[in-house]
Design a protein around this nucleic acid. Sequence first.
DNA 1: CTGCATCCATAACGATACTG
DNA 2: CAGTATCGTTATGGATGCAG
Lengths: 119, 119
Amino acid sequence: MATEHSHDACRSVRDLLARIGSKWTVVVVRSLRSEPRRFSELKRDIGDISQKMLTSTLRDLERDGFICRKVTASIPPRVDYALTDLGRDLLGPLDSLGDWAVANQHRVDAARARAIAAE
Amino acid sequence: MATEHSHDACRSVRDLLARIGSKWTVVVVRSLRSEPRRFSELKRDIGDISQKMLTSTLRDLERDGFICRKVTASIPPRVDYALTDLGRDLLGPLDSLGDWAVANQHRVDAARARAIAAE
DNA sequence: CTGCATCCATAACGATACTG
DNA sequence: CAGTATCGTTATGGATGCAG
């Protein structure tokens, strides 16, 4: 299947890559890997993400069915985010890619160093 | 390994995702899957990519060691692009992700439809 | 605590014209 | 043929202030 490249397949692949290629998506998904988290926990856990980006990343992931949002109407309000089945399924290919990235990072770095040296 | 998330690992994963998440990277790599191609062949094969984006995508991929560029100084000039070993290695995780995207596209579409219906 | 609204800077992308 | 140069548009990300 991977060797085909129908227009539909290309579209869905590019759609998915656009989503997981956005700056914070993978970090947020990985941060939800083992258990649900509150908004502020995510923010603290990730560290250098702005409120705005955390919010919009969560909205996008929710919209596409990767996470679900549970609101507890208390004072102060409490909102928990958790991976859905679809979100957990995504962890598989994501981890594959992540492992590949870690394993081959030195090859990319070497290529970049060569490119700079050749300038 | 996948469950770790050291800072270095996160950086390399995000680096890679930024590259393959850019609009044309995957399309270009897939277009080079089976054999080397000339600039104009790539452009014709992909269709709706601009010269500028094809050039810069090829430059980035070359810089990171995923493809190599072979110039034949003739008139008219001829330039062939081919995947390197690193580029071919990337096809593996890329195909996994692609297969996942094709297989699960309907779930994402369904989630989006639900999100729109709930508005 | 959770988030929305606003404004701003930069980067990505695209169209067009031109060149060795 | 295989680009480079330029310009304009849109998308992305970040900082800050305000609100339920």
